[in-house]
Design a protein around this nucleic acid. Structure first.
Lengths: 205, 205
DNA sequence: TGTACATCAGTGAACGCGCGTTCACTGATGTAC
DNA sequence: TGTACATCAGTGAACGCGCGTTCACTGATGTAC
């Protein structure tokens, strides 16, 4: 490709415009949230006219779906990392999940439909992507739980990490205390439950 | 008030325009999601000119905050309902929380900042409202747990019901099975935890 | 090596739209006398 | 009971804006001969 040979950026043919658009879109997304995504602004950042985007995406919506796809793939990679101890694998998966959301807060929200209009077909495309993420979580759980409990246990764990991710992203956790430590302790409760402490089973304080 | 005496709706002075605007805004919100809120459309629905709204709200953002306030108050009422059995109070509070979100999905999302631009001051106003909801949850927990565990346990429970609410709202739970039953069983896990089942402690299947 | 040509990536101008907000106003209300 | 008046709720027109998308185009590219 010409673009790989020449660094001159002011040439007529860009050479990798699709990726350049996605990259700019992603920066814009993280700067201003899902609702700030705009085709004209994306093109502006790449230094290209707005209509040129239509050679690669059929609409602004399609760009957003492209970002969500990127996000899903990256998240899958993060969750696939091998745990260092088999025993704490679940907690580590949960932490990896939340770490991804914290590193890409607006992308994470986009992946859950924020910014798509209620009528857009992008919204349903994104829902299917989410299912992939869920399947990964369930696969992790399958190594530890009987199959009958899997659906409910998976939903339980997904709800927990999803909710916690959003609360952390929203700045809703109290200031005091290290955030990583707080996350670790909340996930720990996922294993133990909230039941009134049984004798001899002291919870860490 | 004149409006309470007369039913003629085509009079120059509306009489209760502020509430009428909020009501119309709320309907619009639930129809099209937080991003569909528009001052002109709200006024249109009430049958009033757009600028008239400025007698009651300083901006569109202020209307959205007004809706979020309504939502927070209503949610607080839902959570304050006395539990029928002391033992299952926590689960019932969780179910009430999720029931509110399901009944007012777009309002619930609005309460968590969706639809506010990243730079708007409405966003921070809404965050303070959320803290109120959290304090109620913690107050519920305080009746069952030692104070030292309260912050983490509260965050655990809040994360779980928040995440589950959103997943249900988003239509992300599997079709098969009654949704209420699924919610009940997930909340049940909050008490028991995911730990590998201990002998004699059979989980319902 | 040179030239004609098909391909198609990127352009500039324009369309139509609806938005939030401001402004000077008009019309209804209730009160003071 | 009647009239002048202050108040202020609601209006119509306009401003300026930026958006997503379409269109006919232009300019660079690489290939076939």
């Amino acid at each position: 490709l010409r673009s790989l040979r020449s660094k001159k950026s002011d040439q007529y043919h860009h050479g990798d415009l699709r990726n350049a658009l996605l990259t700019a879109a992603r920066e814009l997304l993280e700067e201003g949230g899902p609702s700030s995504l705009g085709l004209r602004e994306i093109a502006r950042r790449v230094g290209v006219s707005a209509p040129s985007a239509y050679h690669y995406f059929s609409s602004l919506d399609a760009i957003a779906v492209g970002l969500a796809e990127q996000g899903t793939n990256e998240m899958a990679e993060c969750l696939a990392v091998e745990a260092s101890h088999k025993a704490s694998q679940l907690a580590q998966t949960g932490e990896a999940y939340i770490a991804f959301a914290r590193a890409n807060p607006a992308l994470y929200r986009l992946m859950f439909g924020e910014g798509f209009s209620a009528t857009s077909k992008g919204g349903v495309a994104v829902r299917d992507l989410r299912q992939m993420a869920f399947d990964i979580i369930k696969a992790r759980l399958a190594e530890r739980l009987p199959e009958g409990d899997l659906a409910i246990a998976g939903l339980f764990l997904w709800s927990l990490v999803h909710g916690l991710s959003l609360l952390v992203i929203d700045g809703q956790i109290e200031k005091k205390g290290d955030t990583d430590e707080v996350i670790r302790r909340v996930l720990e409760l996922a294993g133990n439950g909230l039941a009134v402490p049984r004798m001899g089973a002291r919870r860490r304080v």
